[in-house]
Simulated scan of single mutants.
Amino acid sequence: MSIPSPIHGAVALTHWGVIRARGDDAASFLHSQLTHDFTGLGLSEARLAGYCSAKGRLLASFVAWKASHDDILLACHASVLPAALKRLSMFVLRAKCKLSDASAEVPLFGQVSSSEPIDVWGKTDAEGGAIVRLPDAAGAARLLVAAPQEPQADSLSLDTWRWLEVQSGVPVIEAATVEQFVPQMLNFELVGGVSFQKGCYPGQEIVARAQYRGTVKRRMFLFDISGEAKAGQEVFHSADPGQPAGLIANAAPSPDGATTSALAEVKLAALEGGSLHLGAADGPLLMRRPLPYAVPIDAEQAV
């Protein structure tokens, strides 16, 4: 696979949407519902956070930042937004917090730049909006731009941006993967999506137990696949055709169109021998590629 170098440009993120949480209790309410600390969220930083069911399974994942001291924006995959908004709204109760779908008023753009204007997970104000620095991917600095007008840059295809999302190793919950993963199965705590110092939230006991008792038997890895792949497809091991060994979390075609890059959650035991395949034990081969961060699989395999 040939990787264009450098990758530049901007694109409208039509596969994402925005939830607005506004009010005096917006931060404390989100703090009680999501996997990260929102009471300590400053105006110059952003958060990666998950929204879990009572069983600790991810219902949505968010990139969140403050537009002002009582106005927090949460960007997520558009396919999970309606259900996540409805469920969060059920628990507002007497909190001074109003939740709404702000996708139309807060357009999102992805921008790839050779410069690094702010630190990763930093946030700065832009004309009429904000810029959030996302983790790099394939040597490119990625910016999430929430502003009324598209950034001035060369054109960038949405598929290329989605490929960079996959290459970053930061998973995004889509409708096809709702309630499929405990955060650690997607390395969510390794990429800054979980705080273990904050108070309770839905599923917190299960997430904490997985962390401190060493019960994580599945992890997410980066793969290249010949042919098409999509979120929610099952992965099978060559020696065990009868049951799936994992699940595709996110997938996107590579820039040269030769392969599909995918983040797939798999059983750690399935990495010890044989091969992994998409859809069936004789399906397209999954070729493992390095993630931009270390996954502590050796200790977990020994548990």
Rank of each mutant, 00 (worst) to 15 (best):
A27H: 14
Y51C: 05
P6D: 07
V207M: 02
E265G: 03
E189A: 06
F181W: 12
L88I: 03
I173R: 11
L278G: 13
I118N: 08
P82N: 06
D240T: 13
L271V: 11
P244H: 04
F196S: 05
H77A: 12
G128K: 13
V80C: 10
V295P: 00
V18M: 10
D125F: 07
R57N: 07
S100Q: 10
A231E: 06
I173F: 10
S114N: 06
D119M: 07
K123H: 08
S261H: 15
A27I: 12
L144C: 01
D159K: 12
K217H: 12
I19F: 04
V112K: 13
S155L: 04
A153N: 09
H36F: 02
A102Y: 03
S195K: 11
A302V: 09
R87M: 11
G227A: 04
E105H: 00
A84N: 03
S114V: 05
G193A: 06
E174Q: 02
V166H: 00
S114T: 13
S68A: 02
G273E: 09
S115Y: 02
D240W: 14
D37P: 14
V132Y: 09
K98M: 10
I225M: 05
S226Q: 13
W65N: 03
E228C: 02
A138H: 11
D256I: 09
G246S: 04
S53E: 00
Y293H: 14
A54I: 01
V106K: 11
L88K: 15
E189W: 01
I297F: 12
F109I: 04
L30E: 08
K217D: 04
F29E: 03
I173M: 10
E272M: 12
P4L: 15
A49W: 15
D71A: 08
Q243T: 11
R133Q: 15
G128E: 08
L271W: 09
S238Q: 00
F29L: 11
G50M: 06
G42L: 02
P284C: 03
F223C: 03
T260E: 01
L34V: 01
N187P: 01
D119T: 09
T215H: 14
R162F: 04
A294F: 02
A140H: 03
L73K: 01
D119Q: 09
S113C: 09
T177E: 05
G246P: 06
D101H: 00
A270F: 08
W16G: 10
K98E: 14
L59S: 12
P82W: 09
C52K: 15
G257C: 03
W65F: 15
L278R: 15
M185V: 08
A210N: 15
A21G: 07
A64D: 01
K86W: 07
P202W: 11
E265W: 05
L58Y: 11
R94E: 02
A153V: 08
R162V: 04
H15A: 03
T259S: 13
E105R: 10
Q180G: 10
W163H: 00
L85P: 04
L48W: 12
A299M: 11
A21K: 04
A294N: 03
G273T: 14
